[in-house]
Design a protein around this nucleic acid. Structure first.
Lengths: 115, 115
DNA sequence: TTGATATATTCCCATCTTGGAATATGTTTT
DNA sequence: AAAACATATTCCAAGATGGGAATATATCAA
């Protein structure tokens, strides 16, 4: 009875637009919290909070370096999303006929309704 | 100041596990609300509510048929998700060397930390 | 030790959510 | 018109959220 926790799974974790921004910004890089904050134009606690959630679902790795913490993206947990969406790939990818017939079918049914 | 609305975008809409179940169950089929409710073992209002959200983000199409409403999945709005995740595909797909070097790098850095 | 720096955490609030129960709306049948 | 059926909507409660502000924690430097 309440929304799914953001740390429940990857789907929930990346539902937040700012966290997707963060992942994009950190992709392939290794940045400090403050570096990230400056780069994004966010305050430090906001960066830390979002990174904490991303860390919990495994989308970022944390490495201590003195008083800094360097974060890096680990994209592997995104695989389930890729796989889930791939179930429906046939409708738009490769086989355009499928898509067309699908759309035609909808079109037909809708115009039938309008009569 | 609050979580992103479920209808804000596709990412938020499919963050809810039940809605993903619903999409899977309706994929390729065309089912009535009651048929869906029976199939899922949910009550009717719950099905209607989730379908309403899915409809708002365009993931299902609704067709009136007498007093029934037939719902069908339209997977096209999932494309942005596919595309977004694809940015990171290189890390796990095709080029296993990338993945390995990536993991080794992390491993190295982590053991360095432990000293 | 003390101060400065880097980061995480806590507290508060407005807002949104999901589920259940009840009810409203709309359509068909008798 | 009235009853039956199919679906949507409303009202409620309990959580959970993201952001701001303040504060705690940890580490380095002087």
């Amino acid at each position: 009875m309440a929304r799914t926790k953001t740390t429940f799974d990857i789907f929930s974790a990346i539902a937040e637009p700012k966290r997707r921004e963060l992942i994009e910004a950190l992709a392939g890089k290794a940045l400090t919290v403050n570096q990230t904050a400056e780069m994004m134009g966010w305050n430090q606690p906001m960066v830390s909070k979002h990174l904490t959630i991303l860390k919990k679902v495994g989308l970022v790795n944390e490495q201590k370096d003195g008083r800094c913490r360097v974060y890096q993206v680990n994209p592997l947990p995104l695989m389930p999303i890729q796989n889930w969406v791939a179930q429906f790939e046939q409708f738009w990818n490769g086989n355009l006929d499928n898509l067309e017939s699908y759309l035609n079918e909808i079109q037909t049914k809708e115009s039938k309704d309008e009569q």
